[in-house]
């Protein structure tokens, strides 16, 4: 098709501005993170050494390169605090993603079975909370979970407990917060695959004598796996690096890696260690990130 090809050339020119922007503000910054992760902490402004100074000449630059070291990474591997933080981040992310799948799947399934007209309404209803501020949603839960908050008042009124339960600063509160914040990210991809499924498939399976649980487990669930994959990645990756939710809802005795990084950076002013922690976090997430990109590309570029 010739007109298609004619269209492609100016379309390629459209890439220039966003391309330059992303290289400058997404790719190049990573080079700085890498470089500073190999530097030493210094009491200076900026608080790390060596500082590359291109005007100082070639020898000074070579000296600066020689001063780079992997000490910060050694610290990250040898100090229990960081190892625990990474392990905790992964544990929390796996647990929370499993919870999200368990809670999100029935909701998405229910949406997909609604009459067409109602499906659009349900989708908007699921998306709207995603638009309201993250911080506000966490704050809403602090309101409910605090010592004399609504949840404890209800439990006391129903005589289910005799004393207020401590909810805040516990892992329970953190999981509630994470599930609440990420639920739309799980529901939407699941719903997208479930809604495309032919109802005839279920009917055929039922006609052939499969009980409902078999229809679900042998027909519906396997067919929804692409949606499950998208939802799981969409939740898992950001949860590993989550900062706000564990900071506001969980206790402070076990930190996630996002919190450790934040602490090193803002409280301890140890930029090199914070940078090294970011690099390691990125390494941990590399495989899921690549998987997610493949998925995203396939969806957008081949109209799946």
């Amino acid at each position: 098709m010739s007109s298609r090809r004619i269209f492609a050339r100016p379309a390629r020119f459209a890439a220039i501005a966003p391309y330059v922007w992303m290289v400058l503000f997404f790719l190049v910054p990573f080079a700085f993170v890498l470089k500073i992760s190999l530097s030493q902490t210094a009491i200076a402004q900026p608080p790390y050494a060596p500082v590359f100074d291109l005007t100082a000449g070639w020898d000074a630059l070579r000296g600066a390169f020689a001063a780079l070291s992997a000490d910060n990474f050694k610290l990250l591997v040898s100090d229990d605090i960081y190892v625990f933080a990474y392990m905790r981040s992964l544990t929390v992310a796996v647990t929370a993603t499993a919870l999200l799948l368990l809670i999100g799947y029935p909701i998405a399934y229910g949406m997909a079975r609604l009459p067409k007209r109602w499906q659009a309404v349900a989708m908007v209803l699921v998306i709207v909370p995603f638009w309201t501020s993250f911080l506000i949603r966490i704050y809403a839960w602090i309101n409910i979970l605090q010592h004399d908050g609504l949840l404890n008042q209800i439990l006391l009124a129903l005589h289910l407990v005799s004393q207020p339960v401590v909810w805040l600063s516990t892992d329970t509160a953190m999981y509630i917060g994470i599930v609440y914040s990420y639920l739309p990210f799980m529901i939407l991809p699941l719903y997208a695959t479930l809604a495309k499924m032919e109802p005839a498939l279920e009917e055929a399976a039922a006609d052939l004598g499969a009980p409902p649980w078999q229809v679900f487990w042998l027909v519906i669930f396997p067919l929804s796996l692409p949606g499950v994959g998208a939802g799981v990645l969409l939740c898992f990756i950001p949860i590993v690096g989550e900062f706000v939710i564990p900071d506001l809802l969980a206790g402070s005795n076990a930190l996630m890696i996002g919190q450790t990084l934040w602490l090193e950076f803002f409280t301890n002013k140890d930029w090199p260690v914070a940078s090294a922690a970011a690099i390691v976090l990125l390494m941990v997430l590399l495989v899921p990130l690549l998987l997610y990109e493949r998925l995203q590309k396939r969806q957008l570029e081949h109209g799946r």
Binding site: Y19, M22, L233, E242, L261, A274, S275, L285, E293
Partner: peptide
């Protein structure tokens, strides 16, 4: 190009924030 565009969608915010600040 497409990699750079899709990555920030799920990239933990602490990494994006830290890298930009260092820049």
């Amino acid at each position: 190009f497409s990699g750079m565009l899709y990555a920030p969608l799920v990239m933990p915010e602490v990494i994006t924030g830290l890298s930009l600040l260092l820049l």
